[in-house]
Design a binder for these strands. Sequence first.
RNA 1: GCGCGAUUAGCUCAGUUGGUAGAGCACCCCGUUUACACCGGGAUGGUCGCAGGUUCGAGUCCUGCAUCGCGCACCA
Length: 698
Amino acid sequence: MPKEVDPKFLKPYNPQAVEGAIYKKWEDSGYFNPDNLPKQDGEPFTIIMPPPNANGSLHAGHALFVTLQDIMVRFARMRGKRALWLPGADHAGFETQVVYEKQLEKEGRSRFQMEPEALYKEIMDFTLSNKSFMEGQLRQLGASTDWSREVFTLDPRVISTVYDTFKQLHKDDLLYRGARIVNWCPKHQTSLSNLETERINRKDSLYYFKYGPFTISTARPETKFGDKYVVMHPDDARYAQYQDGQQLELEWINGPITATVIKDEAIDPAFGTGVMTITPWHDPIDFEIAQRHKLPFEQVIDWRGKLLPIAGEFAGMSIKDARPKIVEKLQAKGLVEKTEEYEHEVPVCYKCEREIEPQIKEQWFVKMEPLAKRAIEAVKSGEVKVLTESHEKVLLHWLENIQDWNISRQIVWGIPIPAWFRKDTEGNVLEIYIGDEGPSSAKATEGTWAKDIDTFDTWFSSGQWPFATLGYPDGKDFKNFYPTTVMETGADILFFWVARMLMLGLYRTGEVPFKYVYLHGLVRDAKGKKMSKSKGNVISPLDVSNEYGTDALRMGLIVGNTPGTDLNLDPQKIGAYKKFANKLWNITRFVLSQERTGAIKPELKDEFDAMAKDITKDIEEYRIYMAAEKLYHYVWDRFAAQIIEESKGKPEYGESLYYILENSLRLLHPFMPFITEEIWSSISKDKDLLMVAKWPVA
RNA sequence: GCGCGAUUAGCUCAGUUGGUAGAGCACCCCGUUUACACCGGGAUGGUCGCAGGUUCGAGUCCUGCAUCGCGCACCA
């Protein structure tokens, strides 16, 4: 004689009807904040959320990290730890500015026609409205984050931490301001770090020009106007007759010039003719050669990519227009020997794919080697463990070959660099001042003070995120929750972010910022293609959540997703987990129709406990994908398909069924928090929320 | 140039410290026996890229090769 069950179980599970209310219950309970947890003596467990860029909607990658981190945090919370998941939002400097500039472009406006203050305010409004939108989306995905501790990357206390780090680097002589070759994007009008450039393979013409007695080869005729130095390898026998410093008169693009021979080992005798002329202002190799030989630097191309007056009749032309005309002129003068097609790699801006124009610019650089050294030690000693091993190798390789870091950006949307320069009337810098407020005017005995108008590379500030968010150095949270437990983020920002956090965290606090690094891969579409707006194959996690339920989305993102490898998000797979949610719903319906008779069968309990122990170990060792799959199979293939079938018509199974259901819900909760909490409220009305229920394995 | 991976069922991928291969989807057959048709039962399907080696035993460790992919880097 079956018992009456709650009528809600007589219909299929409807995620949309319950998820919102459940999230509200969690949030109202206060348990997202570790200070409110029933058990206050547990050890701390901390994850700092990688702050999503507040410049659009959450994408599938966000849904993946939310799911992974939420599983880790809910698991820790149920095991009695003081679990803190600290949420954030990123102003995302250059990224957001690019997004906003596209919007301006659509409106027929341009940032270059705007006052910086007005532009800053507009982007701030844009960012803040996206931020609150995004917070709602994080809730929809079930993120059990402590909203009372949320931090925005432009919060005053973050900026103050960033300024302290800048000052400290200056004090420790790890910071320099130098005129170096930078990666200049002519579209975005800013310099970029090496990481912010990409290389594309391209076929171009390689021109061979007669340069006095030599033949030089170049792919960039438009830079050659100021070339007065001709360089060859000192051991190249073909040119042994020429001496370093020897001067030659020769005919060049715009008339006769005096050229000087330079011998330098940077030249590869096997490339082209083994001779080249140099353009120190627009080429990194040439820059170094010029530095070694103390040669002058002259700008040929302006910041917009147009030729300067040194180009004579070509002045004011764009590179694209000028190049063929210059070749034509040289041809007419009989100075073109031949032209070859060749393939080479060209650096481009990672945002607009416009060709990078190397330029010399005064920027702030951080000396990275000493910082990298400590990070390498931390990785090698195991103070910080990187999943997977291959990512650890990649990280070490990068750290071991680190280059100095340009942290200046010529954009308004960012944290201003707290530096002032005292300049004479020529514009030469007489003195540099670094501080929160400007230098007192009384100090300017000569020249005038001008503020650095640049902002920091976003990664310079976000590289300090773990300790900045926790209130270093005196904050209570810093003392309680630092070093954090896990940094879970995308493998694609291993260098941009993880490496910088590691280095800056060690530098400022003397401790690693996190003990584990868990890296996830890219979320691709069902066919393994990278999602992009232009391809139109973007899957919105919020849409998927609405259609299949958040729990199904979460399972689909987790099962079979090993750390560091890309995941194909197939709606069919999500559908399979929607069915699983319904299965669980119907299991409950059946169990609730049974009386709690008989004693728990030892063999069933032992079997369940062994499974529970096994998946606990999996989660502890970050095999989350495997824990999820094992649970799925236990619940469906063992519990539903076998145990329940055997139990039919046998009242002595009653208590066993309740035992297995109740404890399965505990195990499933981190993965499928909504449906498990909903069922929990029906089977144990007098107890606290499932999110703080005790994990079945100690 | 330097470095890191991948190659397992038709497709997409798991396979934890070496113990005679698994999932989802697809496909085929049967079934509406009261938890569930968002279901149940069953079937087909793999010489685990190739060649060697270590081992009682290798998808799993080692070496070489092939193919594909990724990252970093100043070749005019």
